[in-house]
């Protein structure tokens, strides 16, 4: 018995509750002594034998955990799936809701888009970290408390619905596209005839530059009609590589002129800006101008739309497997 053995014993027993230590210590001492004895019997020097024995027994905390039958994982297989499902659900619901609320509250309260976006992003990050930490903590405690997993069991009712590749399954996409395009076309027309802003003499001041009616606004309205026709075709015939290319052309035809007009300051009506006293080129709190933020958002949405089209085309053109349940998932 040397100091090295004493330190090993202490490192092991200190990880179990006080009352169990006096019980555990003699057992570990016996284990060490017998292991040392075995090494001595094979002709090693006493100090080398002790060292070799301790190395053989391994990490004292692991040994103590084996004795106490204590789990060495943060969240073991019993709770892992429940933890993962709950975490995904919370992240997919709580984070977007809180982020949207914070954005709206800040935007409506202060009227600055940049500051509101900044606040919303900071909130999203902090909520994500909090949700992750507290969920994991609760499950780590459950893992150790050994509670029965009431309410967390898997049930057949919770099985996901099969992916719907029929026309019926594409109906929500069609409705969403048509509603969006209708609202967009309506907004373009409405701002011309019944804008919220009026001049002193009561005449309407449109949001968009009326000079654009010579070419660009009819162009955009025509594109909206084409997009609607394209949405109906997707509903009837599903995505294909050709459809994805058409989608790309439509997106470019819309986004490129929109971004160019916007960045050259030709999209908005100067009279409208004068009337509301707003300059989109002015920097907001974050150092971004509203103009550049909107440009970035438009480019991102267009890019996602194009990528999404190709992803859906790839999914739709995958060879039809013999067993329909195994489709691409």
């Amino acid at each position: 018995m040397t100091e090295l053995t004493d330190r090993y014993v202490w490192a092991a027993v200190r990880t179990v509750p006080e009352p169990q230590r006096s019980d555990l210590e003699p057992e570990i001492r016996e284990l060490i002594e017998e292991t040392v004895e075995a090494h001595l019997a094979s002709g090693e020097e006493p100090s080398a034998a002790e060292r070799a024995a301790l190395v053989q027994l391994g990490d004292p905390e692991r040994l103590a955990a084996d004795y106490a039958d204590r789990s060495l994982t943060l969240i073991g297989p019993r709770y892992y799936l429940a933890w993962m499902r709950l975490l995904k659900t919370l992240l997919a619901t709580v984070v977007p809701i809180v982020t949207a609320v914070v954005f709206l509250a800040q935007f409506l309260g202060q009227g600055e888009v940049g500051a509101a976006i900044g606040g919303a992003v900071a909130t999203a990050l902090s909520v994500t970290v909090h949700v992750g930490f507290w969920t994991t903590l609760v499950f780590a405690i459950l893992e150790r408390a050994g509670a029965t997993d009431a309410g967390l069991e898997w049930t057949p009712e919770g099985l996901p619905a099969l992916p719907d590749h029929s026309r019926h399954g594409r109906l929500p996409d069609l409705v969403a596209s048509l509603v969006f395009l209708g609202v967009l076309a309506g907004a373009v027309l409405w701002q011309q005839v019944r804008s919220v802003v009026r001049a002193d003499d009561g005449s309407v001041i449109p949001l968009l530059d009326p000079a654009l009616w010579s070419f660009w606004l009819p162009w955009f309205l025509a594109l909206i009609v084409l997009e609607a026709g394209f949405a109906v075709r997707l509903y009837l015939r599903d995505w294909s590589w050709a459809a994805a290319v058409v989608n790309l052309c439509l997106a470019l035809a819309f986004a490129v002129p929109a971004v160019l007009l916007w960045s050259e300051g030709r999209l908005l009506n100067p009279a409208f800006l004068d009337a509301v006293g707003w300059d989109p080129a002015a920097a907001t709190g974050g150092g971004w101008t509203v103009a550049s933020i909107i440009t970035a958002v438009v480019v991102l949405i267009a890019a996602w739309d194009v990528v999404d089209g190709f992803l859906k085309a790839r999914r739709a053109s995958a060879p039809v497997p013999r067993h329909p349940v195994l489709v691409d998932h």
Binding site: E27, I28, L31, Q56, L63, D66
Partner: peptide, 9 residues
């Protein structure tokens, strides 16, 4: 040995 002793306990 470090498996057997905890197992016995």
């Amino acid at each position: 040995a470090n498996t057997l002793y905890p197992l016995l306990r």
